[in-house]
Amino acid sequence: MDAIIEVNQLHKQYKKRRSKEYVKAVQDVSFKVNRGEILGLLGPNGAGKTTTIKMICGLLVPDSGTIRINDIDNQKHRLNALRQISAVLEGNRNLYWRLTVRENLDYFAGNRGFSRREVHARVEELLGQFNLKEKENELVNRLSRGMQQKLAIAVAMLADSEVILLDEPTLGLDVETGYEVRELLRDIVANHNRTIIISTHDMAVVQDLCERTVIINNGQIVTDDRVENLLKLFAARSYTITINGQLTDQQRKLLQDVFPDSTYQPETIQSTIQVDFSNGAKMYDLFDILKLNEAQIEGIDRETVDFEQIFMKIVKGESAHATA
């Protein structure tokens, strides 16, 4: 697949206020985004996600490193690179609240130099696509938060650019509107041939929408992999084994020695053992322990993990999973 965005060895540091110290916001960040892909940029607060997004948008100058969008260097040819991207950076704050829905769309289209005819065609199309036709003459400050968010995304779509960057697109939305926005984004990628980078805290968005995720912590990339790979990888490492009866004292001791992170829950009829095989431990070793009193295995279940758990493990450094 060909990369539409190439981020190469980005570094950015900020000077602390009233101090001579510097904070390293982004350190040696490199990744590529393929055409038509939805990439999730994840990380805790202050990890460097927004700084990275803003450098891609050309709103922040990196201290070093390069960003190429559609093979255009966004530092050397900033305005040309800006034709390739659009962004929703502050959600509904990106709009003029005292203008109507249509007036906002008209203004932002005109601001990109589109002719009256082009503006009219684009605005009509987007009003229909985003179900905003009924609200076209409503002032933005009278719209619901969800509607405002949809309008902000519609404004980003005006540009007809191949890449759309969204910073926290579902922040502050209720469950229903969040779902609606996710459906909208899915439709944009499927039917409008766009590449999307989403910076978010919302793991449901990542699990539901993103094909790949880049996790940033303390300004550095800690993981860059496909979401399904991460889900498989983490799911494959944790198992719950159900046995008839209980383990002997000797077995319990061995279990603790070989699998120190395991959890054993003894019950009169059936007991369970939860084991994580991520640290190189083998299932055979567990079977050897169980074989000692010929404990009858009733079931082996792979533990289901959601993306939030994976994210927490990676960010807290509990996982050895490195950049793919």
Binding site: C57, L59, L82, S86, L89, E90, N94, W97, N111
Partner: peptide, 18 residues
């Protein structure tokens, strides 16, 4: 203050022309 300055800066026309 409104949060629209960055959107203006992202126009390929350039902020100064706007």
């Amino acid at each position: 203050m409104r949060g629209t300055l960055e959107q203006l800066c992202m126009s390929p026309m350039g902020l100064w022309r706007i």
